Simulated assay, not measured.
Amino acid sequence: MNPSLWLALLGAGTLISFVPGAGAVNTMSNALAVGFRRSIYGILGQQAALLVHIGVAAAGVGILVTNSPLAFNLIRYAGAAYLVYLGVRKFLQQPEHSEVRASQAAETALSMFRRGLWVNLLNPKAIVFFLALIPQFIRPDQPLLGQYGILAATVIAVDLLVMWFFYAGTARSFRRFTQHDRGQVLLNRTFGSLFVGVGAILALA
């Protein structure tokens, strides 16, 4: 991949990563619940899902999904239902004392990874996005494995940095609200509503 093409890929990946979506909401919610450093587990799950989407699109399976309204809608509604489920659970979550949050934080690395994985994996828009993105940056007359490796590494590195240092970092400034019950309730309901809202958009768009 030549430098000018890579710079175009870098710009596209950066722009898309900054657009708020389910991954951003999930990252900020995790950062508020368990802190900036431990939010990386959810972000890594989201990146694993992006890697799967790139592989699916590269294999051409994504074309079959987007050409099948039934398959596409099944994935879309499953993703929307999962986001709504997360939102309702977050909205109804009760305030927790600091010692309870500390004990839960030690147990949630794997669950955060799984949640991040499913949040991005059940997003059919990602499949459509990579189907549109990949042909613009892959040259069929050149070795494909290296090109796909560069594309995957670039997109995932950019998204990881944006999610962790921008979205998780932004959430860190709100963490002082979690020190008292009223602030926790407000933030739980805010992020619960955001999850439900993103799910509704995914289902209706």
Results as ranks from 00 to 15, higher is better:
2 N>K: 14
4 S>E: 08
6 W>R: 14
6 W>E: 13
7 L>T: 13
8 A>D: 14
10 L>C: 07
12 A>I: 12
13 G>F: 00
13 G>H: 00
14 T>V: 12
17 S>D: 13
17 S>E: 10
19 V>N: 08
20 P>W: 04
21 G>I: 05
22 A>G: 08
22 A>E: 05
22 A>I: 08
24 A>Q: 09
28 M>D: 00
31 A>V: 03
32 L>N: 03
33 A>Y: 04
34 V>E: 02
39 S>K: 02
40 I>Y: 04
42 G>F: 09
43 I>L: 10
47 Q>W: 01
52 V>M: 07
54 I>F: 09
54 I>P: 11
55 G>M: 03
61 V>M: 12
63 I>W: 12
64 L>V: 13
64 L>M: 14
66 T>I: 07
66 T>K: 13
78 A>S: 15
78 A>C: 15
84 V>G: 03
85 Y>T: 13
88 V>N: 02
90 K>W: 07
90 K>I: 04
91 F>R: 01
92 L>M: 06
96 E>S: 12
97 H>C: 05
99 E>H: 10
99 E>Q: 07
107 E>S: 13
108 T>I: 02
108 T>A: 08
112 M>A: 03
113 F>T: 06
114 R>T: 05
114 R>C: 12
116 G>A: 03
119 V>L: 07
120 N>K: 05
123 N>C: 03
124 P>Y: 02
124 P>G: 11
125 K>M: 08
126 A>D: 11
126 A>H: 11
126 A>Y: 09
126 A>Q: 11
127 I>V: 12
128 V>H: 06
129 F>P: 14
130 F>V: 01
130 F>I: 00
130 F>K: 01
132 A>N: 08
133 L>W: 05
139 R>F: 06
139 R>V: 02
140 P>N: 08
140 P>G: 12
141 D>W: 01
141 D>V: 01
141 D>N: 02
143 P>N: 10
143 P>M: 15
144 L>S: 14
144 L>M: 15
145 L>R: 14
146 G>F: 13
150 I>T: 15
151 L>G: 05
154 T>W: 01
154 T>Q: 07
154 T>P: 08
158 V>Y: 05
164 W>H: 12
165 F>I: 06
168 A>T: 11
171 A>W: 10
172 R>G: 01
174 F>H: 01
175 R>Q: 06
175 R>G: 07
175 R>A: 06
177 F>S: 09
181 D>Q: 05
181 D>E: 10
183 G>V: 04
185 V>S: 03
188 N>C: 00
193 S>F: 03
197 G>I: 00
202 L>V: 03
204 L>Q: 08
204 L>I: 06
205 A>E: 15
